[in-house]
Amino acid sequence: MTVVLIGEAEYKEFELLSDAIEDRGGEPVVWDTTDWPSDVPVTYDVGSDTVTVEREFRVEEVTAVFPWVHHIFHPALSRYADEFEEHGTESVFMIADQWRGVFRSLLGLFENHGATVFYPPGAQQYDDWKPLQLEQLAMAGVSVPDTVFTTDPDRVREFVAEHGEVVYKPVADSTRPNRLSESDLGDAPLDRLSNAPVQFQEYAPGDDVRAYFLDGEVVGASRYEIDDWTYKSVGRVDDAEPVDLREEVRRDVERAARVSPIRFGAVDLRVTDDEHALLEVNPGPRFAFHDLHGATDIAGVLADALVE
């Protein structure tokens, strides 16, 4: 059973998931995208039963594929910073699109041949659909904070006046969010909003909780800390512990999972003793530090799904 993992191999998740796959009798193969574009030969022969990524693979021998979607399909191109200077913006975007086109197609190819494929074409950029995502969650009865996406400074002022304190972040990026209150409005560069829409969300008090789901069910939940204010699980955490979700919280997470077009993901929440708010749903979520703190065993859960 050959299980292909695609992404930047320096992530600790690759090691944990590879070990878990081997423990279950599978053969993990990592396609490391850290240095792509590179001299690693990649060939997709249409109509053939083989593909080449450094070495030749028979299509039928690949039984499962797990791509870290942010490494391949995310629009952020910060990893190409040097190439922007050397080749220019248009060329870099074109280069990235060519690689994405091939690997989107490879996922579809393996899926068409019966492999278990996480994030097939059409589901790879779900976290970039934040306006639609939150609309769908609200329609499903999930508890989400009041949220607005806007380029209008007057609408921002109204929103902050209504809520007192809000969180803002890009519509389609994993950048850490920031807080904005009425006292900050005077210095806020609201005139720059016309450059691009920004997400503004009612601030939700409580503990940071990340709940993982697979096939519509919660498979692990972690209460975590990074520093004095996080609101988002990004990479290394300072502390994490397993948490039993209250029934109404679990119900909202599983509603969100069923609404989402992805098999596996994480829901970021703020939870108090008697209230909760679901902030967003993330495909390709980080889990290594939650696993390493003993709060979850997501590597094991994923390995079971990939090797079954």
Rank of each mutant, 00 (worst) to 15 (best):
D97C: 03
M94L: 07
F110C: 11
S91T: 15
R100H: 04
L107I: 08
H113D: 03
F118T: 02
S91H: 10
V117F: 09
F93Y: 13
D97M: 02
T116Q: 09
W99P: 00
Q125K: 08
I95A: 04
G88P: 04
A123Y: 03
A96L: 03
S105F: 08
P120V: 10
S105T: 15
R100Y: 04
V117H: 11
A96V: 00
T89W: 03
T116I: 07
M94E: 14
R100G: 02
Q98T: 14
F118D: 02
E111D: 15
W99N: 08
A96C: 00
R104C: 05
P121T: 13
L109N: 13
A115R: 04
A96M: 00
D97S: 15
M94W: 11
V102H: 02
F103N: 00
G108T: 12
T89Y: 11
F93L: 10
V117W: 05
Y119V: 09
W99Q: 05
M94P: 00
L107K: 11
E111S: 15
Y119C: 09
G122L: 02
G108V: 06
G101E: 06
L106F: 15
Y119K: 06
F93V: 12
G114F: 04
R104W: 02
G108D: 12
A123T: 15
Q124V: 14
H87F: 10
V102I: 11
V117I: 07
H113R: 02
P120I: 08
V102K: 01
T116A: 13
Q125N: 15
G101L: 03
G114N: 12
P120D: 12
G114T: 14
T116N: 12
V117K: 09
Q125C: 12
D97W: 01
N112I: 00
V117A: 13
G114R: 08
G122M: 02
G108M: 03
E90G: 14
H113K: 03
P120W: 05
W99K: 02
A123R: 07
G101C: 10
V102F: 01
F103L: 05
P121D: 13
F110R: 05
A123M: 03
G114Q: 07
H113E: 08
P120L: 05
Q98M: 07
Q125P: 00
A123K: 05
P121I: 08
G88W: 00
I95R: 03
Q125W: 01
P120K: 13
G88C: 01
N112F: 00
H87N: 05
T116Y: 08
A115W: 03
V92S: 10
Q124S: 14
G122R: 00
S91R: 09
Q98P: 01
E111Y: 04
E111N: 12
F103D: 00
R100A: 04
T89D: 05
S91M: 06
E90T: 14
A123F: 00
V117N: 13
L106K: 02
E90S: 15
G88S: 02
F118H: 04
Q124K: 04
Y119Q: 06
Q98E: 13
R100D: 00
M94G: 15
S91G: 00
Y119W: 06
D97Q: 09
S105R: 07
T89F: 06
V117T: 13
G108P: 10
H87C: 01
A115P: 12
H113T: 05
E90Y: 12
H113W: 01
